[in-house]
Design a protein around this nucleic acid. Sequence first.
DNA 1: CACCAAAGTGGAACGTGTTCCTATTATGGA
DNA 2: TCCATAATAGGAACACGTTCCACTTTGGTG
Lengths: 200, 200
Amino acid sequence: MNAINSLPADQVGSTAQRERRRRILAATIELATQGGFDAVQMRAVSERADVALGTLYRYFPSKIHLLVSALGTEFSKTATSLEGRTIPGDTPAERVLNVLGRNTKAMQRDPQLTEALTRAFMFADASVSSEIHSVGMMLTGVLVQAMNGDDTVEPSEDQVAIAKVIGDVWLSLLVGWVTGRHSADDVSRSMSVAVHLLLR
Amino acid sequence: MNAINSLPADQVGSTAQRERRRRILAATIELATQGGFDAVQMRAVSERADVALGTLYRYFPSKIHLLVSALGTEFSKTATSLEGRTIPGDTPAERVLNVLGRNTKAMQRDPQLTEALTRAFMFADASVSSEIHSVGMMLTGVLVQAMNGDDTVEPSEDQVAIAKVIGDVWLSLLVGWVTGRHSADDVSRSMSVAVHLLLR
DNA sequence: CACCAAAGTGGAACGTGTTCCTATTATGGA
DNA sequence: TCCATAATAGGAACACGTTCCACTTTGGTG
């Protein structure tokens, strides 16, 4: 299964529109990286992206849509960088932990960004379900690829089910980390426990 | 392990203060049940609880604290009702699914309330960690009790670890349901998959 | 009982997400 | 090329979470 690398909106519209969209998402990432969820203020995003506030809302109907879309584009970068690659590790569990560990480390490098994107993802309501769904698919796809070692094999239903459970656990732990309930070590340790339980 | 049945705040303060706190939480639950997260407006809560807005903020420093505390009191009711009881089911997996299924059904009965409480729980930041922690403990406690069949046995470390993973999966699925990504059936099915994988 | 500190009241005020409106600018088809 | 239409700019206005302030009530203490 290949990851869904681009949201539909990446392809549509004129060049100027794609460029505006790109600027908006870049501004979002920058602000989130610096100051987290609270720093991503719609007026600030629109100014930094050099776009009117109304235009920003035409592209992304809410702050949550904006942040979840930003998460989607970040995620698709990860997915793309893994595409066609063989993931190191001798067992499915090792490979999955390798991928998740890499991701977790990246998120620890930009804690504010992680906080912003994670909280948006978790706060999203039903109106954001399509964006959320695409993020979920990418996550599951990456995990299935890791379980198999590469992305050439068609995954079984069971594999997909297990990948979904692992993804769920990872998201919960991420929230725990963002919330300050778990340390980074807690996350790694619990993730290891869960993955070894699920992939034995 | 017995559940933590009451937050500290339940015990402190004068009778009038406990009564105010009770009214506030009751008003919160009522509004959430009717209209979900958005309907729990601080002005509305304060009016319905017959308390000044400033007083409401003295008791609960933010809307998120308020809703997470409400979740805590709801949860502690569940925990209390299970206390000392023997949970039906022949295997740990069956008993855990029994408890979770009962809870899931209750949440489906009041979808708006569930949406409000779940979103608050997930949106909470580090300033709410103590409230969140107490909810997490109750959830883990209930699950451990279910795994053992009753609450008379001291749980092992492994059991606690597994219970935490199960709790994480359940929370993620709940978010998925609230967000409209998963149907109620999806939740039951995935939960069953996860629990059978983890408790085999 | 008189008094003081703490708690509560009522409401104004502020910040930020969101909506709305008008004028201006791009865009694509006849 | 010119026009109709849509998209954008710029900014006012509104809603709700949150803070703050001046005043009143309450509850414990000498």
